[in-house]
Design a protein around this nucleic acid. Structure first.
Length: 585
DNA sequence: GCCGTTTTCGGCCCGACTGTTTTCAGTCG
């Protein structure tokens, strides 16, 4: 036993952030108002946005170096991370029934209302609120009426259907884009754009924001309210309109303003909240008041801001692309001119990595995949079927592989302009060995190694397994390195810092998988990988030809991790891509 | 609860919309 050594716990930063948010809500239930509450919320955002876990910061006593975290919060976070518990949270929780926090998840129900429902009607959970509404007891409270009851019942129904989950960007973006096109074609619209977390390309989103400029807002708001697929109009005023779509209970908010305010409004409603607050404060230091209604000097005169880039120029900093607006270092970099100017774009990508066909568990033939890639303007596509061990996915035996090469040669001869590269997504076995012999792997142009089974190993075992795979000289690309499925499967436990360090050392590329439910590795790890000089590939993990468009989500994730064109191997032409993969260290 | 080229106290982003009011509180972003 070594009691004087700080023992790291399994408390990750997402858990810490959630605890801080719970404390914020509990303080509001207590009637604590305003700034103390916000300090906890800001700290939660700060912790959640950290590029690494909290363990080292706690051990080195550096928590207070984070903006928004002072002595009181640092002490609470330390207690939570080192002991796995937080006495202050337990004291607060003991004062309220456990169901109250969940009540605040309902739309238009916040801590003030929850506190009154509890004190005056003894409502302590969703079931009891539903009963109180049905029995007409809520309307008897002052400030509540029949409409409030109906809205709460509707809110409860929506909440139960959605289970409080955020939606995948990949599911929402097509719907959002279609609505944006409808808004753009409404009468008088000058400019229109998506905003919010959809524009920042966050991996999951809660709703869709659209910002438009037009001389008259009314007809534009009507265009959304009357759009096909709208289940309910949640609210509609002079400048904004909120609707809920039938598909996925998705909420869409539209704001319409005069064109002279478009840039500042777009910036405001793109967020993130943390980025925007920081920007306003920087403006304040220069005597500029920044709001969605423009930029004003202290004497009340308005500064002309036509594009978002004007706003950053006013503050003597580089333009910050939406994907980087999280207040995780972009301000410091932009003020010092250190933001990457050559952030990866979809146009930079020459070939799609990671595709399956009917040879294993894909739905389209090799020729169909090749023609779809050609139609998207791609120059090559890596054909990487599953290997023998992946029986569930129709993994290929070595003989199958050789027959497949003949078909690849034929398709390459028939389909001009695009080249299928001969590859494999070989299983990384429990020991870290690869599922094919080196003599087979050496004949392939692209070797991705991925874990598909035995996700239940512990952190030590899983880390050793991945490090062993990286040491294999035949491995060129580490596929979906953490194995997560957003909203349905946690990543397996693994020490990513060690894995990324080894990948950098060995020259193995790491996949940024663009399948919307994977996005693996995630943006925070991309940023660490870039810092360490790890080479990346952006992939589509395609199982049908439509999935080639997943590349856009891999690019989004790479951008959110500050990856530049030069960090990503499949920005190279096919020959140089294959050569680069072989250059192991 | 945090923060400091208005620095150890007194600020802290702020407007739109709804439902319930009859001038405003609560919620949201």
């Amino acid at each position: 036993m070594t009691p004087d050594v700080t023992i790291p716990t399994a408390v990750d930063k997402a858990t810490v952030a959630q605890v801080l948010r719970d404390i914020s809500l509990l303080l509001q239930l207590q009637g604590e108002s305003g700034f103390r509450v916000r300090a906890y919320d800001m700290a939660a955002d700060r912790v959640a946005g950290l590029p690494q876990e909290l363990g080292p910061l706690v051990a080195e006593g550096r928590l207070e170096s984070l903006p928004g975290i002072g002595p009181a919060l640092a002490e609470k976070i330390s207690e939570l991370v080192t002991t796995g518990r937080l006495g202050y949270l337990e004291e607060l929780r003991a004062q309220f029934p456990p169901g109250l926090l969940e009540l605040t998840q309902l739309p238009d129900v916040g801590p003030k209302k929850v506190a009154r429902l509890w004190r005056e009607l003894q409502v302590s959970g969703i079931e009891e609120l539903e009963r109180a509404c049905r029995e007409g007891r809520v309307r008897q409270l002052s400030g509540f009426g029949a409409k409030s009851e109906a809205k709460m019942l509707e809110g409860i129904a929506v909440y139960r259907r959605a289970r409080g989950e955020r939606k995948l960007l990949g599911e929402v973006l097509p719907v959002a884009t279609a609505l944006l096109e409808r808004v753009k074609s409404a009468p008088g619209v000058v400019r229109a754009s998506l905003g919010g977390s959809v524009r920042r390309q966050a991996e999951t989103v809660a709703d869709v924001d659209i910002i438009a400029s037009a001389p008259e807002a009314g007809p534009v708001l009507d265009a959304l309210a009357n759009a096909p697929g709208v289940a309910a109009v949640l609210g509609k005023g002079d400048s904004k309109c909120s609707v809920r779509l039938e598909a996925g209970d998705l909420q869409v908010d539209l704001r319409v303003l005069p064109d002279e305010d478009f840039a500042t409004a777009l910036h405001h409603f793109t967020g993130s909240k943390a980025h925007h607050i920081r920007l306003r404060n920087l403006g304040h230091e220069r005597g500029l008041k920044i709001s969605e209604w423009g930029v004003h000097r202290d004497d009340g005169t308005k500064v002309r801001v036509t594009e978002e880039s004007d706003l950053y120029a006013l503050l003597d900093m580089q333009y910050v692309p939406p994907e980087l607006r999280e207040d995780t270092g972009e301000f410091e970099a932009a003020r010092e001119g250190r933001l990457p100017e050559d952030l990866l774009t979809l146009e930079d990508v020459q070939g799609a990595v990671h595709a399956h066909s009917t040879w294993s568990d894909g739905r389209n033939s090799l020729e169909e995949m090749a023609r779809a890639a050609q139609a998207l303007g791609l120059k090559y596509l890596t054909v990487t079927e599953h290997s023998e061990a992946a029986i569930y996915a129709g993994g290929l035996k070595v003989d199958d592989l050789k027959r497949q090469w003949e078909e690849i040669d034929r398709v390459n001869a028939d389909v001009p302009g695009v080249r299928l590269l001969k590859g494999i997504e070989v299983d990384i076995l429990e020991s870290g060995a690869l599922d094919y012999a080196d003599s087979v792997l050496e004949q392939l142009e692209v070797v991705i190694g991925s874990i598909h089974v035995r996700h239940g190993m512990d952190e030590d075992q899983m880390t050793r397994r991945l490090l062993a795979a990286l040491d294999n000289p035949c491995l060129q690309i580490l596929g979906h390195p953490t194995g997560r499925l957003i909203n349905s499967r946690e990543p397996y436990p693994v020490r990513m810092d060690e894995v990324l360090a080894r990948a950098a050392e060995r020259g193995v590329a790491v996949e940024v998988n663009g399948k919307p439910a994977r996005l693996d590795i995630k943006a925070e790890y991309v940023r660490q990988a870039v810092k360490r000089g790890v080479r990346l590939v952006v992939s589509c993990d395609a199982h049908q030809k439509e999935d080639l468009r997943n590349l856009a989500f891999a690019v989004a994730t790479a951008r959110r991790g500050w990856a530049r064109k030069g960090d990503v191997l499949n920005t190279l032409p096919a020959d140089r891509f294959v050569t680069a993969l072989r250059e192991r260290r």
